[in-house]
Design a binder for these strands. Structure first.
Lengths: 141, 141
DNA sequence: TCAAAAAAGTTGTATATACAACTTTTTGTT
DNA sequence: AACAAAAAGTTGTATATACAACTTTTTTGA
């Protein structure tokens, strides 16, 4: 068999693989700092959003976090269970005092993670990341 | 309550969130092209590696793909089930003819996905991504 | 050689994610 | 107000991922 395509193929060019690797590496750094709080990066993102802008629906949260609605729905479920969020007046979701307090406590640790990653990326690396995301967001919506 | 930290916090700076978003967007583009083949990007990465370098152990695959061993183990399980990989002489894993054939067939579709992403990122965007990954890999190992 | 130690591989458990299908809620129209 | 249509939210199912704990295989040293 020939398999012409495989011959000329170079797997190190794959953008998908690269992005997944970047994501795994940075996620690992955040996990290291967040582990003591028994919370994940994804959950924290939602808490961050609601700590700044209270009273959002799932729909709005999806748009802000750019998450598929069922993905967000399950993230929220865990945060309701942990009592960091509440939904007393459906469908409006709010952060609880407990949630706010957690966010306030975590921010310094989050800053440590950010500092560690910034030391690796440098200012130009961070700019590069911003450019990448900006381009992807504007073209894709 | 005060929650001083929340006041001054700006969630749009979070590198972790940005990276996760980039990853979700690019993954979605790849999925679009790979769906007809009933295979995922992560599975394809493993097949790509073994299409070029036959006869690897899980250990070596982990190092090459930069995946945690249990994550890889489960990816492999699905590829064994689909008969794209085999392990006749434990612990050496090989791609099957079926697997090679699939990879050969998929490469043109993979190239379409790459083209679509490249059009969004541009050459500078792709360079930026490479820089980001290089920095993360050298510092983290 | 064979027993202990180390390495590799596997399984348990949990979260994240997406797509599709379904249910509930909201909205718009008469 | 009541029904139909649309939107929002939820659940089913599957994959990806990681960490911890466990099992199997390989290596090492006596």
């Amino acid at each position: 068999m020939e398999f012409e395509n495989i011959q000329s193929f170079d797997l190190t060019t794959c953008i998908g693989s690269k992005v997944m690797r970047i994501s795994r590496i940075t996620a690992k750094i955040f996990r290291k700092y967040l582990r003591p709080f028994n919370i994940t990066g994804s959950q924290l993102t939602v808490l961050f959003i609601l700590a700044k802008r209270e009273g959002l629906t799932q729909k709005r949260l999806c748009e802000i976090a750019q998450l598929e609605k069922s993905s967000l729905n399950r993230n929220l479920k865990r945060l309701f269970e942990k009592r960091y969020l509440s939904r007393k007046e459906f469908p409006i979701i709010n952060i609880t005092d407990e949630g706010k307090s957690l966010v306030n406590t975590i921010i310094p640790e989050w800053e440590k993670a950010m500092k560690e990653i910034r030391q690796i990326l440098g200012e130009d690396g961070e700019d590069a990341l911003d450019m990448t995301l900006t381009k992807l967001m504007t073209k894709k919506a």
